[in-house]
Write a protein that binds this DNA or RNA. Structure first.
Lengths: 190, 190
DNA sequence: AGCCACCGAGGCAAATTGCCACACGCCACT
DNA sequence: AGTGGCGTGTGGCAATTTGCCTCGGTGGCT
């Protein structure tokens, strides 16, 4: 039911790129991979057709946002999905104005990516999350993202987070990965 | 550039609406205010001209996003700014796809709003913050947002955040950061 | 009157954090 | 060979913070 899609993945982390490419390729698409902007552009020149592009916003020197326009110029029907380690709303708005189809924060699985590509973003997000996440969850996710942007370097992540290295260590140990908080304690009313 | 702008503000909280309208009106614009979608639509019918619209995404029953299309249909050059208590990236993307010019999270001062209206969102947010915000800052902002969604009710906000009410009290009193941030202008509350 | 919800605060035990230290592995360099 | 830098893992201890109890006060409501 799915004709092979031609997909361009631009991700500067080589490992993550290959991982993601494999996961995507196994699913549905033929995937070209680039690790920076110039590589992406040269691939663009070689391609006769492109259905979708998945761009890491953080490409070392380059900014994934700057690839949106060239891609859309060459392949107007190509759907462009931005990925970013930790998203900012301003960046999401900017990406969308430049023609991006959707915007995701890492970590994003292959199905996340495909879902985001196939979704109609204009109709998403209409429902506001009713309950803000708990502080603990927010902290945990932020820690994970920070850790990831620092390649798992605990010392630097701790410094970036503004907490002691020892404290980060302890916190990481305490939450091996355990509980998912999905308790929807429904507030009586708002 | 001080020609009077005609601006439509849609905000369901009456107090906040009036406050914001006054602040905006004092600055630059003639402001019409609506508190729900139908009110906004009827104002739209009466207007011959509209430069900008500021929509709260959370309009009780209604969703501010659904106003974007009618506004843009009637006034294609009207800039539309979405406001939301705590933003989600998905909602920001959806709003932009529907034609919104920009997307802000509360609290937003009048100058924040005007800046966002005048900014070129396609060029903003291109620079990712290299360093993730400190945990303290993240927590503080999340606390503020949560507090706001609960109308300043400390008890309920604490419960939503998953921390003790006493702890929230103490944290609020300490009022840590706010010095680290670049600028926060005193809202014109007189 | 009562009742209820909320805020503010004191006090105290328990948990957490900050910060010192040290050992170990790894890698680059003289 | 060896030396230094860097990152992690661990222990211990004091200071801070949190959780949880209490109480008093205020304002709105039946």
């Amino acid at each position: 039911m799915t004709e092979p899609m031609r997909l361009l993945l631009v991700e500067d982390d080589a490992l993550l790129a290959e991982q993601t490419a494999r996961a995507l390729g196994r699913r549905v698409a033929e995937v070209n991979v680039a690790h920076d902007a110039s590589g992406a552009l040269s691939i663009l020149d070689r391609l006769a057709h492109l259905d979708a592009a998945v761009l890491d916003q953080n490409l070392g020197q380059d900014n994934g946002l700057d690839l949106i326009t060239p891609i859309r110029e060459r392949f107007p029907h190509c759907k462009v999905l931005l990925l970013t380690g930790y998203g900012s709303i301003a960046a999401a708005v900017a990406a969308t104005h430049r023609g991006a189809h959707n915007y995701l924060t890492k970590p994003a699985s292959a199905s996340d990516i495909l879902d985001a590509l196939n979704a109609d973003p204009a109709s998403l997000g209409t429902a506001l999350p009713a309950t803000p996440p708990s502080l603990q969850r927010l902290e945990w996710e932020h820690i994970q993202r920070t850790l990831e942007t620092h390649d798992g370097n605990i010392s630097r992540a701790a410094e970036a987070l503004g907490i002691h290295r020892r404290t980060l260590q302890r916190r990481l140990k305490k939450r091996p990965s355990a509980s998912e908080y999905q308790r929807e304690k429904s507030p009586s009313k708002d």
